[in-house]
Design a binder for these strands. Structure first.
Length: 314
DNA sequence: AGCCAGGCTAAAT
DNA sequence: ATTTAGCATGGC
């Protein structure tokens, strides 16, 4: 599944620090809004430094920069095969094909105009599952803080270029399973601590086989994820969409709920069943993608309208 | 000060 | 079968 070229050539590791150079590549891609994508509440691992984004994928530190030719990537160590990064960023996806299949209505046209270049990532299932267990009734900024704390305390330090801030991997399920609830609560995750710990235990013990969800139907995979305490329909759909690329997963959080109600139901209350049948029938073969555009659209609009009034306070 | 945040669980209608 | 309180924490 993960085609990471692990140990192609282990050259002698007696390299002096001055010889260590970031390895770079440019992934050619058009219509890719890197900032919107990394900030749109899919992953919580990216730090903005100037015009660049620093993060950790698996055990690799990565720095990403948007360039006219595509996305420039730098790593701390030699990379023989960049497939892992192209897969994460989904640079092979033809965005125009996706956007052309959205419903041709006014709200979606506005969302596309607003967010063109927004992409869906393809994340590691465990990290995605764990992150979204931590996400319930939290703002994105707070989820980032919690995830950062979990990685710093319980992840492993990864190699970074000289002069770069230390970075840490996301702790595996067996590590999380071995932590106490108190250790986890110290990262400010509150009532989510026992949920995260139990999820780590379930995955580590093989009671939940994340790799096998690839071979299962979306409905069956959603059921398997929902067996975990703290994982309901919304979080399960986030994992199915962001880690497994299931376009028939359509996470409905408070933002998307408001958007659907306001834009398609005349701002009136809707039952869950009615909403689900509408979503299934209406948003087409890239429903998951459409959901992300709606989410980012209403969220950025709301942020813009909330900034102005504070300037007028006495 | 009160409300809300990429919700879910368990209890009460 | 649906609706509602409680849950930790922090920002506005």
């Amino acid at each position: 599944m993960s085609s990471t070229a692990c140990n192609s050539l282990h050259v002698e590791t007696c390299v002096s620090a001055s010889e260590v150079q970031p390895r770079e590549i440019i992934l050619a891609v058009r219509d890719y809004d890197l900032s919107a994508t990394l900030q749109s509440g899919q992953s919580f691992r990216w730090q903005k430094r100037g015009e660049e984004w620093e993060g950790v994928l698996g055990a690799r530190w990565v720095r990403l920069t948007a360039t006219p030719d595509g996305i420039k990537a730098a790593t701390a160590e030699d990379v023989a095969d960049w497939a892992w990064l192209a897969r994460y960023l989904q640079t092979e996806v033809d965005l125009n094909e996706v956007l052309a299949r959205f419903p041709n209505d006014e709200p979606m046209r506005r969302a596309v105009t607003c967010c063109r270049g927004l992409r869906l990532l393809r994340q590691d299932p465990w990290e995605c599952l764990a992150s979204f267990i931590l996400s319930s009734t939290k703002r994105i900024a707070q989820i980032q803080q919690i995830v950062t704390c979990v990685c710093q305390r319980f992840g492993q330090a990864v190699a970074v270029p000289p002069g770069t801030a230390q970075a840490y991997s996301f702790p595996g399920p067996e590590v999380v399973a071995g932590l106490s609830e108190a250790e986890l609560r110290d990262c400010k995750m509150g009532f989510r601590a026992p949920y995260l710990r139990a999820a780590g235990a379930a995955v580590a013990a093989g009671r939940l086989d994340l790799a096998r969800l690839c071979d299962q139907g979306t409905h069956q995979a959603r059921f398997a994820l929902s067996q975990l305490r703290g994982v309901g329909p919304k979080i399960a759909d986030c994992v199915l969409l962001f880690a497994y690329g299931r376009q028939d997963a359509f996470p409905v959080d408070t933002w998307v709920m408001r958007a659907l109600r306001d834009l398609y139901f005349g701002k009136q209350r809707v039952t869950k069943a009615r909403l689900e049948s509408f979503v299934r029938a209406y948003f087409g073969p890239y429903a998951g993608y459409a959901q992300q555009y709606l989410f980012h659209y209403v969220r950025t609009r709301s942020a813009a309208s909330r900034v102005a009034p504070s300037e007028f306070r006495p």
